[in-house]
């Protein structure tokens, strides 16, 4: 399952807070679903791309979840000030932040984001959040804030189908 998301998008925050956490606990941790975060920063959001870079840089340290959590939980603050760096720094040690800041500036990070955007376009992703579920050769793109109950029923139906 691929989640095309934008850290500055309120609907993505809603999906993260209400659905993805439960999904993680009940399907990802138990090994039923393999979830991949995909960056899809929208042009209308001034700080989406820089936030995506910090996410990527933290992922290089194996600490993506921490960035995801702090950026979504404080979205309304940093989208006003643009202080993505300060928001991320609040949950990392100075040593980690030094590494993250260095990685943020590398072309590889930008290239990875562009790769995700290009991949999203192949699935006709036009809005965030969009979840793309792959199962037995079939692809199901689902846009918008999917409630956990609906997703849970859908996944169970899918997993039980032969």
């Amino acid at each position: 399952m691929e989640t095309f998301s934008d850290f500055q998008c309120p609907a993505c925050k809603q999906l993260y807070l209400t659905t993805n956490r439960q999904l993680n606990d009940n399907y990802v941790v138990t090994g039923k679903v393999f979830e991949i975060h995909r960056d899809f920063p929208l042009a209308g959001h001034a700080y989406s791309r820089i936030a995506a870079r910090y996410g990527r840089a933290a992922a290089a340290l194996g600490k993506f979840e921490q960035v995801e959590q702090v950026l979504f939980q404080n979205q309304e603050k940093w989208e006003q000030t643009g202080d993505v760096d300060g928001t991320v720094a609040s949950v990392f040690s100075p040593a980690d932040m030094t590494k993250i800041r260095a990685t943020v500036k590398t072309p590889a990070v930008e290239a990875a984001i562009e790769k995700d955007i290009a991949l999203g376009k192949t699935y006709s992703v036009s809005q965030t959040p969009t979840i793309v579920i792959h199962y037995k050769g079939q692809t199901f793109p689902i846009s918008g804030v999917v409630g956990y109950d609906a997703l849970h029923a859908f996944l169970d139906q899918l997993l039980s189908s032969r």
Partner: peptide, 14 residues
Amino acid sequence: WFLLKFSVSANLST
């Protein structure tokens, strides 16, 4: 049918 049901549910959640 289950996909239609899921789609409508997702649309209403959105």
